[in-house]
Design a protein around this nucleic acid. Structure first.
Lengths: 102, 102
DNA sequence: TGACAATATGTCAAACTTGACATATTTTTA
DNA sequence: TAAAAATATGTCAAGTTTGACATATTGTCA
C-alpha cells in the first residue's frame, strides 16, 4: 500500500494490517475507518447544533472534555460503542445514525 | 422499571442503570440494545446466507466459535466494534449495516 | 434411538478502552 | 493585540473486551 498513507494512519495510532491492496487499506479497514469518522462527524454536528461546548457534552455523558475531543476526532482509542452511546445520549435517533453511516 | 424485565436483562449480563422510566429501559439504553441485537441478527443472517458454520466464520475473522456464538446472541461482552468489523469482513456493505440498524 | 455436527455458555489472561488529569494549541472576544 | 474560552494531545490506572479453551446443550439424520 501507499507508504505515506500508511504512515499517516499509523501516526494517528491506527494499526494497519498487512493484507491490504496496493491502493490503500483493505476494503474492510477503510470501510471501518470511514464509518467511524462518519459517526465522529455526526457527533460533532449534533453537539454544535445543540450549542454545547465539549465540556457541557462531557458532563451529559459522564465523560471528560478530552474524551469528547477524541470522539470528535475519530481517535483510535475511541470505540464505536462509545460513539453510538454518545450519539443516542445527545438525542440522535437510530435513523440519524443509519443516515450518518451511509 | 419492570422488575422482571430488568432481571432478565441483568441475568444476561447487562448492567441496567437507574435513571430509566417506569415502562422499561431509558430510551438510550433500549435503543442501544436494539441496535446491537439488530446487528447480531444481521451477522447471523449473513453467515447463513453464505452457508458458513460458526467455526468457518470464526476462522475468517481470526476469532473463535464461541465468540461468534456470542456475537450472534448479542452477548453483553460483545462490542459494536466487533460486530461491525465482522459484518464488514463477511461482505456486508455500509448500506447493509445502515439498513440493519433502522 | 444414538452418534455426530453445530451452537451455546462459563472462565480467564492478555489486549484494548475508559475517564481523568495535565498541558498544549487554537479560536473567540473585548 | 492579549486574555479567556474552547478544543486538542499525551499519559495512566481501572475497567472492559478479546480469543481461546473446556464443556454443555441443541439439532440432524441414518
Amino acid at each position: 500500500m501507499d507508504k505515506k498513507k500508511k504512515k499517516v494512519l499509523e501516526s494517528k495510532g491506527y494499526r494497519v494490517g498487512s493484507a491490504e491492496n496496493f491502493l490503500g487499506l483493505s476494503k474492510e479497514e477503510s470501510e471501518y475507518i470511514e464509518l467511524k469518522l462518519a459517526l465522529s462527524q455526526a457527533l460533532s454536528e449534533q453537539r454544535k447544533q445543540k450549542k454545547l461546548t465539549q465540556i457541557q457534552l462531557a458532563k451529559m455523558l459522564n465523560s471528560s472534555q478530552s474524551r469528547v475531543a477524541k470522539m470528535e476526532k475519530g481517535d483510535p482509542t475511541v470505540s464505536l460503542d462509545l460513539l453510538i452511546k454518545s450519539l443516542l445520549a445527545v438525542g440522535a435517533t437510530k435513523k440519524n445514525i443509519a443516515e450518518a453511516i451511509n
